[in-house]
Design a protein around this nucleic acid. Structure first.
Length: 454
DNA sequence: TTAGGGTTAG
């Protein structure tokens, strides 16, 4: 007779192979175990699910669930939490929701871990109201929220553009005894920096220090990026050197932040210097690092070098993503080959890539193809400030002030934030062509449209 | 389970 301790021993072996990413060996041990009469249990399968979703794919993890069913082993809360976490990790948000439903149908009661993941999923789907409903359910049903519950809520609010609400919630939670962790502070500092609320961000950084917590690599990267965004390059580079001294450049995040900021402001030589420093370390390049390097070459007018990096990247098993495609498309446009850029994107597929579509709209305008730019504009399912601003600026440039004025109004009416520069471009254009009264009329129409949107 | 990096206009 095989004892329970044999299965426990089997599970220890499986856990250790899974941890070392030796999944094939883990599978062999299970087969050998079965031959000897040691049957795997729910823990064995849960361990496998976790490993497959981490190191292989969500589908591979989900197929373990089928094997469990074949072996008549009932999945439990850990099984489903691992699968849901796997679906989240691979950004398979609809799978995440389906699994939650499946779990409820099987009568498995979700725990706080499941609810936290569901909240996270709603935020990723840009459904903050649903996420907030889950949050209040957790509180009202006395489900003992964890630290991750609060942090997920605060992070989701920041990411969906509700930084003020996150700040209010943070204060309220503190009044009720919530002790913020370093993760909490990092979430808020990042949210505040991205929303340009720099004074409050500084204040939050001070609060972090006063609470006895020590800023970590994430705090540093966040603050450094904020310096670059607000054009304080020297300060940003000082922080970078400090990060090197502290050993905080063990991955590519800091380098990519520095190079990205320098390229954006056309400081190509400096950017090349920092990129070289990164390549000379033993940090392996990941997707973001490759895209940064390709962009550096494209912006420096070295398209051939960019394609060389692209080949290397693909040989290493990375597939070009929407960033890569936009960068390459932009590189072709910079060379004056707008048609080639369009052909490239037609093959690669725009796939609702808003940045690529915006770029194409702008580049077509600049190549005297405004009508074609409008065609793209009409086909777009989503538009943002960039979409409207590009068209408006370019229409003004060619003196089509009435068209620009109409577009400006439709932008405001759609609830899209209009950039001050685009608004002033239309006003100036109208004034210079002697339509002073038109400016007054447009201003009042914008005011009216804004009040209707609010 | 929660926090940091990469693509667009003027």
């Amino acid at each position: 007779m095989v004892s329970r301790s044999s299965t426990r021993f089997l599970n220890i072996c499986i856990a250790s192979f899974c941890k070392a990413k030796h999944l094939q060996r883990a599978e062999t041990v299970i087969i050998d175990g079965v031959r000897l009469g040691v049957l795997p249990d729910v823990v064995t399968y849960n361990t496998l699910i976790n490993a497959y979703s981490r190191f292989v794919s969500f589908d591979a993890a989900y197929s373990v669930l089928d094997r469990m069913k074949e072996a008549s082993i009932k999945p439990d809360i850990v099984t489903y939490n691992s699968l849901i976490a796997g679906a989240m990790r691979h950004c398979l948000l609809s799978n995440c929701m389906d699994l939650f439903e499946e779990m409820l149908e099987l009568g498995i009661k979700p725990d706080i871990w499941s609810y936290n993941t569901l909240m996270h999923c709603f935020f990723k789907l840009e459904r903050p109201d649903d996420a907030y409903r889950v949050f209040t359910d957790i509180i009202l049903c006395y489900l003992s929220p964890s630290h991750a519950t609060y942090n997920t809520m605060l992070n989701g609010l920041c990411k969906c553009g509700f930084v003020e609400n996150a700040l209010m919630l943070f204060r309220k939670l503190k009044r009720h005894g919530f002790v913020p962790s370093l993760v909490t502070y990092n979430i808020l500092i990042n949210g505040l920096c991205k929303a340009w609320k720099l004074k409050t961000a500084r204040w939050m950084l001070k609060e972090l220090g006063a609470s006895g917590l020590v800023p970590n690599v994430i705090t540093y990267t966040t603050v450094m990026r904020c310096c670059f965004r607000s054009r304080r390059f020297e300060q940003g580079l000082e922080i970078f050197e400090e990060m090197i001294d502290k050993g905080y450049t063990f991955d590519g995040f800091a380098y990519v932040t520095v190079v990205g900021a320098l390229v954006k402001t056309s400081r190509i030589e400096e950017a090349s210097h920092y990129m070289e420093r990164m390549v000379n370390t033993d940090i392996g390049l990941d997707m973001a690092s490759y895209n940064t390097l390709i962009n550096l070459y494209c912006k420096g007018g070295k398209l051939e070098m960019a394609h060389g990096v692209l080949d290397k990247m693909e040989k290493e098993g990375f597939e070009r993503d929407e960033y890569t495609n936009t960068i390459l498309m932009n590189g072709l446009c910079e060379e004056g080959d707008v048609e080639g850029a369009m052909e490239y994107m037609n093959v690669a597929g725009f796939n609702s890539n808003l940045v690529a579509l915006n770029t194409m709209v702008d580049r077509c305008c600049k190549a005297d193809q405004i009508d074609y730019a409008f065609k793209i504009f009409d086909s777009m399912h989503m538009r943002d400030s960039f979409t409207y601003s590009s068209l408006i600026h370019n229409l003004c440039k060619v003196g089509r002030f009435r068209c620009a004025s109409k577009l400006l109004l439709s932008c405001v009416r759609s609830g899209t934030r209009i950039l001050p520069s685009a608004k002033h471009a239309v006003f100036d254009c109208l004034r210079h062509s002697g339509h002073q009264r038109e400016v007054k009329r447009l201003k009042s129409e914008i005011k009216l449209a804004l009040s209707a949107v609010v």
